[in-house]
């Protein structure tokens, strides 16, 4: 399991790809509700897709030997829909995922990924399917998700992907980490706060 979580400027994700097929994969499937009862996110990596994996007894992509250590997840349409739980991207990140490519992502899931420094890139359905086929035909290959070039490439192939402008800038400049952005505005924040009459209970 990788522990070096995303940090600073993010322009590339490198490593093996893992393919997870299916539309509308919701956050309940990514991390079932019973795992929300926890005081930290540490064990979420092992619990990712828990129920699907039990059902497929070892045949789930996240269990297959050749996928271990993969860092780029290739999904289909409307990935991450359903409840807003941040546990879902946390679980993926703690399993090792550092970048996702899909046809589309649910809005809150997308935002939660960005807040963790995980880029979500998109490509049309047919292209996603080609990439998935290519990954599956040679599952040992190393890939580069290049945010600057907007490509996903192996030593043999390269496809263009797209990524929203705002999030892209945030990742490239290292400004995806909302906390430090917010803390940086301390002076302005204090000004705004003391103009609000309720802060001193109208005294």
């Amino acid at each position: 399991m990788k522990t070096n979580f995303p940090n600073g400027k993010i322009s590339k994700v490198t490593g093996k790809c893992i393919v997870l097929k299916g539309d509308d994969i919701d956050t309940d499937r990514i991390i079932p509700a019973r795992f929300l009862k926890c005081v930290n996110f540490n064990s979420l990596g092992e619990q990712v897709f828990a129920d699907d994996r039990i059902e497929l007894t070892g045949n789930h992509p996240f269990d297959k030997n050749h996928n271990q250590g993969a860092s780029i997840l290739i999904v289909n349409d409307n990935f991450g829909c359903g409840s807003s739980r941040e546990h879902a991207p946390q679980a993926l990140m703690r399993w090792g995922i550092r970048g996702i490519i899909g046809q589309s992502f649910a809005e809150i899931f997308y935002g939660n990924c960005l807040a963790l420094g995980i880029p979500c890139a998109i490509a049309p359905s047919s292209k996603i399917k080609t990439i998935q086929a290519s990954v599956e035909s040679n599952n040992k290959m190393n890939w580069i998700l290049d945010l600057q070039q907007k490509t996903i490439q192996s030593p043999k192939e390269s496809w263009s992907i797209s990524i929203e402008k705002g999030p892209l800038e945030m990742l490239l400049s290292g400004k995806w980490d909302a906390t430090s952005q917010l803390i940086a505005q301390e002076k302005k924040l204090t000004e705004v706060m003391y103009k609000l009459p309720y802060i001193k209970n109208f005294k």
């Binding site: 807003s84 739980r85 941040e86 546990h87 809150i108 939660n112 807040a115 963790l116 909302a178 906390t179 917010l182 803390i183 505005q185 301390e186 924040l189 706060m193």
Partner: peptide, 14 residues
């Protein structure tokens, strides 16, 4: 979400 809870704790803003 939880990451925003952290943000609000740290900065009282979102």
């Amino acid at each position: 979400g939880t990451s925003q809870v952290r943000d609000v704790l740290a900065s009282q803003s979102i």
